[in-house]
Design a protein around this nucleic acid. Structure first.
Length: 588
RNA sequence: GCGGGAGUAGUUCAGCUGGUUAGAACGCUGCCCUGUCACGGCAGAGGCCGCGGGUUCGAAUCCCGUCUCUCGCGCCA
């Protein structure tokens, strides 16, 4: 190939026997037998074993090389003796007999071993990220990420989506997160904001007539991190389409997601749910799964048992029902014969979670057991429809909190009993999100999602319906309990926009001041349009089967939003601050 | 901002209800070793037990404070 190498470290096989080759790469391991030594040389593509014996005068020099030094070796490809073949390497049938070598770059003693798969602390991994990235797992994850992104790009372009770049320095957008701000030198006292998403720009591109937009878009939000939420920045497959209904958007992206998952899954045993994906209305998701991002691999469902307990002798529940509470229950198969401790542990867990407890009834040998059973009469017990060896767990509370806690119980029991079919990706759409909700602190009506979504029923619904009953053309896509994206059919009519904001307590003037660019554009002929934006990092995380998003990002920040390698954020020289017209205040 | 877990050698960890010189493995240094692939063997160096204070004859261990990392909650419409 060139002066550094004729082959990659994954290339050589018996076909290359007797060839004189040159390899360059990192010293993975040296095994020194005194008069014979092996060097495993590693590059992006693989590992090749090289060998030298003490009759060669280079022997002593090679023996002293540190791991992870970069070397170039020249030598002859030789066949390994049958007993010494290594079947776990693609190059395991040959080795290279070293004839000469050159150290291209020395490595100090490593703070973090590279040739090992054991877990290390995140602090050291992030500080020496370049070493961590050399290691097998992370290296593979990043290559997978690249493959997924290039696949996405191909598939979107094949479907006539057009790729755009949108500004990084922009102004605050309508999303609800905190913006990252960048001070302006030319306009002192004013700030740019990094985009939380290219939401307004993609809508403007639709208004500009480009019909189908997409972008592998960087998004910036100054919010606290989670295991599946990178601090600061993340990437979305942002897309938008003109002249479409909600169903058209679903039909456009479902095959892309299905193929991405099906073509990049770890092995062929993994099943990807076929499209069209299940559509679940928000209210139904809350009723059956107790969450708006259900993991459909979990076989447990929540049902309502309020009527069973309404007139029952179980005072704890029936009294609460009189005050407006509901009772939710989860039937779990094959648990009637679990020991008392199983139920006690769950009860204790529920208390730790802040619930009063977790009552249950189990049905075995045609008898109902458990602390609640004696409080129900026969008809009430039979109406539970339990089969032999079923248990049912009850949650009582105000609707929303009962739903949410039932969701936690559903997840907890599923995990404890290991009921999840891990070898599958189960997609669903959550649709019909409410347009508005009540702010519990202020009791005021506010947007529950993106204020730019089109309300179902449009102007007619805004004028005549109770705002809390209005649904939006707003949808999420969920996979295995992970929210991959939010999307919507947008509101493209200014008069509906004014009305929608009016209901949430914004005057026409406030709206025009905040979103003048967008609003103005809608007045010059905006097509009906909508889209969505699946999170790239989360897609890679699912496909790489990683529990933490930092494992699929080359250079992530830590939980405190610091880059330990580049030392960001950092203090800025006084001169620079002065230039920007910024004076720091000492909060202490 | 709040709650859980963690912080001991370069690294991953052990170290009991307080007790003499703080251990192991990997890595590092030196020596031995011609078929290993996590090579093996012998020897050695390496520690402010996160930091500060307190209790005690005595603290890695108990108490208080503080810092750092991490998971969750709030937050992310």
């Amino acid at each position: 190939m060139n002066t550094y190498r004729t082959h990659f470290c994954s290339d050589l096989t018996l076909k290359n026997l007797s060839e004189k080759v040159t390899l360059s790469g990192w010293v993975d391991t040296i095994r020194d037998h005194g008069n014979l030594l092996f060097v495993d040389i590693r590059d992006n593509y693989g590992i090749t074993q090289c060998v030298i014996d003490a009759t060669n005068n280079l022997f002593k020099k090679i023996a002293k090389i540190n791991n992870e030094s970069v070397i170039k070796i020249k030598g002859e490809v030789t066949k390994r003796n049958e007993t010494t073949v290594n079947t776990s390497l693609s190059t395991g049938e040959i080795e290279v007999k070293i004839e000469s070598f050159e150290i291209l770059s020395n490595s100090n003693t490593l703070p973090l071993p590279v040739n090992s798969d054991i877990e290390y602390g995140e602090e050291i991994r992030l500080k020496y990220r370049f070493l961590d990235l050399r290691r097998n797992k992370l290296h593979k994850n990043i290559l997978l990420r690249n493959k997924i992104i290039s696949d996405i790009r191909k598939k979107m372009i094949d479907r006539d989506f057009v790729e755009f770049q949108t500004p990084i320095l922009t102004s605050s957008s309508p999303e609800g997160a905190r913006d990252y701000l960048v001070p302006s030198r030319l306009h002192q006292g004013k700030f740019y904001a990094l985009p939380q998403a290219p939401q307004q720009f993609k809508q403007l591109l639709m208004i500009a007539g480009f019909d189908k937009y997409f972008q592998i878009a960087p998004c910036f939000r100054d919010e606290d991190s989670r295991a599946d939420r990178s601090p600061g920045e993340f990437y979305q497959l942002d897309f938008e389409m003109s002249f479409v209904t909600q169903e058209d958007v679903f039909e456009a992206i479902e095959p892309v997601l299905f193929e991405i998952f099906n073509e990049n899954k770890k092995n062929n045993k993994i099943i990807v749910s076929p499209y069209p994906f299940k559509r679940i209305p928000y209210n139904e998701a809350m009723e059956i799964y107790g969450t708006d991002k259900p993991d459909l691999r979990n076989p447990l469902n929540i049902k309502d048992y309020t009527t069973v307990f309404k007139g029952s002798n179980f005072k704890i529940f029936s009294d609460q029902i009189k005050k407006g509470s509901v009772v939710k229950g989860i039937i779990v198969k094959n648990t009637g014969d679990q020991p008392r401790s199983f139920f006690d542990k769950l009860n204790n867990w529920a208390r730790e979670q802040g619930a009063a407890g977790l009552g249950y009834i189990s049905f075995t040998d045609n008898a109902f057991k458990g602390p609640i059973a004696k409080n129900l009469d026969e008809n009430q017990l039979l109406s539970l429809n339990l089969e032999v060896n079923d248990s049912i767990f009850f949650i009582c509370g105000k609707l929303k909190e009962a739903q949410l806690f039932s969701g936690k119980v559903r997840e907890k029991i599923c995990n404890d009993l290991n009921l999840l079919n891990k070898a599958s990706f189960e997609f669903c759409w959550i649709v019909d999100f409410p347009m508005y909700e009540i702010d519990e602190k202020t009791n005021k009506i506010q947007f529950s999602h993106n204020p730019f979504s089109m309300p179902q029923g449009e102007m007619e619904a805004l004028e005549n319906k109770n705002p809390l009953d209005i649904k939006a053309y707003q949808y999420d896509i969920v996979c295995n309990g992970v929210e991959l994206s939010s999307g919507a059919i947008r509101n493209h009519k200014p008069e509906i926009m004014y009305k929608a904001f009016d209901i949430a307590g914004y005057t026409k003037e406030e709206l025009e001041e905040k979103f003048s660019g967008m609003l103005n554009a809608l007045k010059f002929g905006a097509p009906p349009h909508g889209g969505s934006a699946p999170g790239i990092d989360r897609i890679v995380m699912l496909l790489a089967d990683e529990p933490n998003i930092r494992e699929v990002i080359a250079f992530p920040m830590n939980q405190q939003a610091m880059d330990l390698m580049m030392d960001a954020p950092a203090r800025i020289d006084k001169d620079r601050l002065e230039e920007l017209g910024i004076k720091l205040i000492d909060k202490n």
